[in-house]
Nucleic acid binder design. Structure first.
Lengths: 208, 208
DNA sequence: AAGAATTTGTGAAATTTTTCACAAAGTCGG
DNA sequence: CCGACTTTGTGAAAAATTTCACAAATTCTT
């Protein structure tokens, strides 16, 4: 399945978006979908769609397009969404609580197993079904629970420190919402969600 | 200032990140910064940094690099952050409240002037200093308050409907947090923040 | 069953983005 | 003020990504 060819990261992002489009078309009770339909929906070129999918195999039928159920399954396999991912969230503030309550993660196989905070008032309680632990317990719980992904939703100043804790606990990937760039070892995958950055981007285009 | 040359969108994103790096260096009391320092910090090539900045002018001095205060100001001008932006937020749920409380926006000139919700229990109250209005008042308030940017933080099913309302009210840009692709007229700038997408991306790289 | 119509998968071409590499401009120490 | 350094700004080269375009596979129509 996984080819030797280097796959552009943006292809992976598009794969997620194809998945979303398929969900919408599924509700319309289509059985097949052609590359040009996916492309139109996403405002891209149709051969882009075919190239992206061709990195991973030959899923389509000439003259017919792609069988929707099959394609959804294939994308799920490619993205690693056929298994459950065990996730920890650090920082049960406004944003952290919102993410704990967010239904979208659960559906895609991302299970927030544990939350951490340094505020004694929050510890021991449950937020949207997830127990909040003292951050001093982070290492032991992440190891015991075999948690692989960490979400950082604490203020900027402490973000690097928490990233270090997560790394030392053996986490494999971090999704960082703190508005600060953090450094992690090369074997840890890091993804930043900078909320202001998106607004700044809009601001640029509105200003021209 | 604005050249005829087509500026890659990714350059704009990097500009925001240069801005973050400058903030961090400033605290260390540096006066100048060289392209290779910015580059190192961001794990990119130094000529990339110079190219990005050169789209907008000649801000550096050979042998010396860039004067930090000046560069920060220039980037602010480029990104349109020297003015205030009037923003509305639709959907005061978990995520919406978190964004209302988020300090980062304010600092960059993004002021959330009004929030909207359809839940009568929330209307009329204030959340983190912002009044929550009935969504039926959206059009009139957006016009009266001259609001230009809308943030959508409602569940997926109603997102398109709200986008239509915002568009009809004359909004110029939308930041969409609903996990669904929405359609807007070409003159409205749309940016999607799909939280699951980021986790899916991590999942892909962890699965390989 | 044959011809028309679709649509895939993929080399090749075009375009975009990144990196290289270096002249020119400026700094610094003595 | 000179010679050694440093670093910018930018053409040119390289690399990556997107688009074109078409043979081959498959379905559809009659």
């Amino acid at each position: 399945m996984v080819k030797k060819t280097k796959i552009p990261e943006i292809t992976i992002t598009r794969l997620s978006n194809y998945f979303r489009v398929l969900d919408e078309f599924k509700r319309r009770e289509f059985y097949n979908i052609a590359s040009y339909q996916l492309a139109e929906e996403m405002d891209i070129n149709d051969s882009q769609v075919r190239k992206d999918l061709a990195y991973f195999g030959q899923f389509g039928k000439p003259g017919m397009g792609y069988e929707m159920t099959r394609l959804k399954e294939e994308i799920q396999k490619i993205l690693g969404l056929t298994r459950k991912w065990r996730v920890a969230l650090v920082g049960v503030g406004n944003l952290g609580s919102a993410l704990l309550a967010y239904k979208g993660f659960q559906g895609q196989g991302f299970h927030i197993i544990a939350a951490f905070d340094s505020d004694p008032k929050k510890m021991g309680k449950k937020w949207a079904g997830t127990v909040v632990y003292d951050i001093t317990e982070l290492k032991s719980i992440i190891r015991k629970e075999r948690i692989e992904i960490g979400i950082i939703t604490i203020p900027a100043p402490a973000a690097q420190e928490v990233a270090n804790l997560l790394t030392k606990a053996g986490i494999k990937a971090i999704l960082n919402f703190a508005p600060v760039r953090i450094a992690v070892p090369k074997n840890v995958r890091l993804s930043n969600v900078d909320l202001s950055l998106r607004l700044e981007n809009l601001s640029f285009f509105l200003s021209r």
